[in-house]
Amino acid sequence: MTPDLAPILIAAADHGNSAAVEQAPSAAEPWLMLSVQVGVGLLVLSILLCLWRMIRGPHLADRVLAGDTMAMLVAGLVIVLAIKLDSALFYDAAIVVSVLGFASTVAFAQYIGARQKASDDPLTAELENQPGLIATPDELERRAGK
């Protein structure tokens, strides 16, 4: 690299950070910050709802899908904070969280699909299916025969 290229390269590398600072905030900026704060509250509320489903179950797949949704919600929360702080650095965290959520979903799906002994046990099957809303084995047989 020749010496006179160095300042140009540094300026080009720094361009992503300096461009956002130079622009004056628009008239809608306070409203955007207000909706960011409302958004953080709503996303935390959504995470708590998913946490309720993760605790409640009843099927193991319910817990896993609650975890998957929570990973997506956390990625969204990180991106909302990126809006608030005007920074590109948070995107890496969002990418990592969504990749981890996908990987854990795939791993748990393999596990759930492989554990055939557990679901053949009538006690486990009874525990993991909600009474009331879920079809009973009799109803399933009647529908299959129809």
């Binding site: 099927h59 998957d68 990749v99 979903t105 799906a109 393999q110 759930i112 053949d120 879920i134 084995p137």
Partner: peptide, 30 residues
Amino acid sequence: AVIAFAFVAVPVGSHMLAKAAHRDKARPWK
């Protein structure tokens, strides 16, 4: 990058989870 990854990964993951739950004999709504 985030949008492309999410639009591929989330449907694939939930499809795998639904197939696994069905194989595990998760009973459907009545």
